[in-house]
């Protein structure tokens, strides 16, 4: 395992494009999270002007709810992470290095494991970036902070990790099937931005809710801001274990198909 980690690490550590992509991704996440409150407050105060009752400016950066709001917001950048996965998995095919690895004595199981390590590591990096943002923003914005408040809703970061891992798994599966980065990015985007939203709209709600991206996204529901409360909507503030189970099921299916393709296909 440590040996496979070293192989995968060497490939990426020496690739300037890898670092560029990772740093851009982290900057995007941090910018989004640090800028979100100002953006929401502007909408809230605009709404407040026309409202007969004043809307309180409730910070989204206070513990423990910050775990919920920031993991929800960071979820919007899933496609960026998926593109990174596609870029670096399809590289192995365009450089034909996957064939060279196999004839050098890396077994097909090990090839699969290195790719699994890669998506787990990327998801982990993303979860760490979000966690650090949560800690920094939360510590500065929470009044009357107690330690219990910091950890209270931190389970949202676990759900976030699973959510992006599932999307990364989906991107990896497409990459393995299609092998070309451009094509894979187009197919992924069409599915992500068009096909599933249209399907979700057309299909009966009982069926549509089981679509993969909908399932992953549902783990973290919309956070309840002051504005939402005003409208009387109240979203779920816990994580439904059924959604976790279904996401894990989807992830397993993606991984099994990926494994079987690597195992069977000529390289």
């Amino acid at each position: 395992m440590k040996y496979l980690l070293r192989i995968e690490w060497r490939k990426h550590a020496k690739n300037p494009i890898f670092w560029a992509v990772i740093i851009l991704y982290i900057i995007s996440v941090v910018t989004e999270l640090f800028g979100a409150e100002a953006f929401i407050n502007r909408i809230t105060s605009n709404a407040s002007k026309n409202s007969p009752i004043p809307i309180p400016n409730l910070s989204i950066y206070t513990f423990p709810d910050i775990w919920h709001s920031l993991t929800y917001l960071a979820g919007f950048l899933k496609p960026l992470l998926a593109f990174a996965v596609i870029l670096f998995v399809t590289n192995e095919f365009s450089y034909k290095t996957i064939r060279q690895h196999i004839i050098n004595g890396l077994s097909r199981e090990e090839v699969f494991t290195t790719k699994l390590i890669f998506i787990v590591m990327l998801s982990f990096v993303s979860a760490v970036a979000v966690s650090l943002s949560v800690l920094i923003l939360g510590l500065f914005h929470t009044t009357g902070l107690q330690f219990g408040m910091i950890t209270q809703k931190s389970f949202f970061i676990g759900a976030y990790f699973l959510e992006i891992l599932c999307v990364a798994g989906f991107a990896m599966l497409l990459s393995i099937i299609l092998k070309r980065s451009g094509l894979t990015i187009v197919v992924f985007s069409v599915y992500f931005f068009i096909a599933e939203p249209v399907l979700g709209f057309e299909l009966n709600e009982d069926v549509a809710r089981y679509l993969p991206l909908k399932t992953f996204g549902r783990m973290i529901d919309v956070p309840n801001t002051a504005l939402m409360k005003l409208f009387g909507v109240n979203f779920r503030e816990y994580i439904d274990l059924m959604d976790v189970f279904l996401s894990l099921l989807y992830l397993s299916i993606f991984l099994v198909i990926t494994y079987l393709i690597i195992k069977k296909r000529d390289t």
């Binding site: 490939k11 020496k14 690739n15 300037p16 494009i17 450089y95 034909k96 290095t97 064939r99 060279q100």
Partner: peptide, 9 residues
């Protein structure tokens, strides 16, 4: 053909 990572030494 020689199969290597182009960006690596």
């Amino acid at each position: 053909v020689p199969l290597f990572y182009p960006f690596m030494s």
